[in-house]
Amino acid sequence: MTTTPSRSTAPAPRGSGVHPAARPVVAPRRPSQAAVVRALSRHAVLICVLAVVLYPLLWMVGASFRPGNEAFGTLGLWPDNFTLDNYRDGWSYGSLNFSRYFVNSLVISALAIVGNVVSCALAAYAFARLDFPFRRVLFALVLATLLLPYQVTIVPQYVLFNQLAWINTILPLTVPKFLATDAFFVFLMVQFIRTLPRELDEAARLDGCGHLGIFLRIVVPLSLPAIGTTAMFTFIRTWDDFLGPLLYLNNPDRWTVTLGLNGFLDATGTSAFGPLFAMATLAIAPIVGFFLVSQKLLIEGVATSGLK
């Protein structure tokens, strides 16, 4: 048994010539031999793709447990001699200090999540539910900024933050999130809020709720899936961000995890593969962890909005 009908109507095997009208009453039936072969070959193809996709990551995890005297050019996934030394060494390699980097990354990511969720939800509510002058023009601007290359704003933003004396602080990485600069999330939430039944708003209005009340009591609780997707993607993007910290955080005390990893390059060339891969594994572990917990939500977010 290899083919599983996804819905209650079993898809008729190709070429069997079943009349469409007969389909809804098709009883569960044994798949033909040809169908089994086709399904098996599809799985074979997918497993090959799966191997290519996952092998590099599994190899890196394996390498992070590999003692320094084992070669790092081997195909094997698991080291002959398992060791945790790389994690101990990498955590404070040379002048690097990953305790600090993880705390810094966490603080920035947490602030970014709060900022993005609040500011994007506020804007999305206005676009999805309220009527106001220039609404169409402003919403067109949301869509236009979706495609705006960030390079156009990094130089002037750097000049601005430099004049505000924000260099070497986390402000350039967090304050913009409170101003809904990620148009993607505004768009995502607008699309979601539009699917909510308007009758609830009207009922709340008759009960005396103002717009803020409707937003807080009706729209926000019902939008938790979209808010969750926004929070997850914000976390992943902020945690992974390299260019932002590279521009704004020069002082090693302020570094994020991504800058710490990059520090291996400056400190050692690339000879210290073990500690490097140990820290690289830790750097992507929160992302993979969050993904495994919330993958259904994330994937629906991608499917409905095209987020990367």
Binding site: R42, A283, V288, Q295
Partner: peptide, 25 residues
């Protein structure tokens, strides 16, 4: 085509998109 294990395949294939631009990878 409505595969068995579809959610698992889909999740595994999607994972690199999340971390492909990271310093670690």
């Amino acid at each position: 085509r409505g595969m068995r294990f579809l959610p698992m395949y889909r999740a595994a294939f999607y994972l690199p998109s999340l971390i492909g631009a990271s310093v670690a990878v």
